[in-house]
Design a binder for these strands. Structure first.
Lengths: 217, 217
DNA sequence: CCTACCGATCGGTAGG
DNA sequence: CCTACCGATCGGTAGG
């Protein structure tokens, strides 16, 4: 061990492996604490480097953060598109989406805040576009398919636009921050069931004509 | 003007007025940028003080932040309890809640993150309790009343627990960060309509038996 | 990829 | 409530 500084990852790092180590450490730290709360020295320490060494791989802290976010969005896109591509019914697709998306651990809200507040205009634009393509688009296509197949109401028949449904679903998934300690698995499951229940059936009792604007036919 | 530093508020500040000026400036800044992104010097500048002067009114930055959050929660509680107390039907109450709660400008998500990450255990406990009492409780009581009056389905009849409904509503209101520029008034209105529509009626088309677990009777 | 170091800024204190 | 100032830490650079 001629390193002396940190636990060098697996073994002797090859060519581009150091870069990926940095991104991995940065992802873990940024996603848990947010952009501002994580220092470049913490990231460097976590992969056994000195802080200035980071700048051989990334122009600055923001550039590293953008790479982290882009990779994260790409992972989400892969998962969501896979679910959207499956031909199962909408209810089942929704359950799979809820099971797949990180409820609180990835702290989606944190991510959106940082995109809005910590990046320059150019990076913000790129990330907003990536967010639309990776998260909104697959979810929108699930709802659109549901409408097309007649399983969901079209906007003209008392439904809502598919893209709006996608945003509302994402909001429900974010929850309201991690309230208290980590949610248990059964809590997550109950939450998932509740979301599906609301999105599909709403909460109105049968026969209750509470909303005069509602004319599904 | 013997001040020389900043626009001193209205006129010569009386006794406890300086303190309130500090809280007001802090609220504006904290709510827009988050705890870490706002420096004590910015707050002081905003009310025509030097930075050390803040410490004559608050023990430290965190204590000031806690006061800001507590006041904010109290404002929300007043509004929500007023809506919950009105005897109108659930649909109308939901619309009023959505109109009342700050959609993106107050950045609820930001607030929750800071509560979880920037405060010590004691303050975090106090704020979580205040959040439950000020936001969750009034919303829960609206949903509970709806169930009691037969307007909403009880959890045993395909509904969900009132507290869960409250959390889901808050999630939908947060949206997914401020996506892009400020939402326009008409966008807000469309969003409000969509939320009410989903919460009451869901999205399932009539006759579509997509969810085998659904037995409202 | 390291050592050494920069200017800037942070939250907070001393002392009046 | 101000001036003066503290130690700590930040992101980033010089130079090898």
């Amino acid at each position: 061990m001629a390193r002396g500084r940190g636990k060098s990852p697996p073994a002797a790092a090859g060519a581009g492996e150091t870069r990926q180590d940095i991104v991995s450490a940065a992802r873990r730290l940024f996603m848990e604490h947010g952009f501002r709360a994580v220092s470049t020295r913490q990231i460097a320490d976590d992969c056994g480097l000195t802080q200035p060494a980071l700048y051989r791989h990334f122009a600055d802290k923001r550039a590293l953060y953008e790479v982290v976010l882009m990779e994260e969005l790409d992972t989400m896109r892969a998962g969501l598109e896979r679910i959207a591509a499956r031909g199962t019914n909408v209810a089942e697709q929704l359950r799979q989406v809820i099971r797949f998306l990180p409820g609180a651990e990835h702290d989606l809200a944190q991510m959106f805040h940082d995109i809005s507040h910590e990046l320059d205009d150019a990076a913000r634009g790129r990330l907003q576009m990536a967010f639309e393509q990776s998260m909104v688009a697959p979810l929108t296509s699930i709802f659109a398919a549901g409408i097309r197949q007649g399983a969901l109401r079209a906007p003209e028949r008392g439904g809502i636009p598919p893209a709006t449904a996608a945003y509302l679903l994402l909001g429900m998934l974010q929850g309201t921050g991690r309230r208290g300690a980590r949610e248990s698995t059964t809590q997550k499951e109950q939450r998932a069931t509740a979301i599906v229940q609301v999105m599909l059936h709403g909460l109105l009792a049968p026969g209750a004509a509470d909303d005069p604007a509602y004319h599904p036919m």
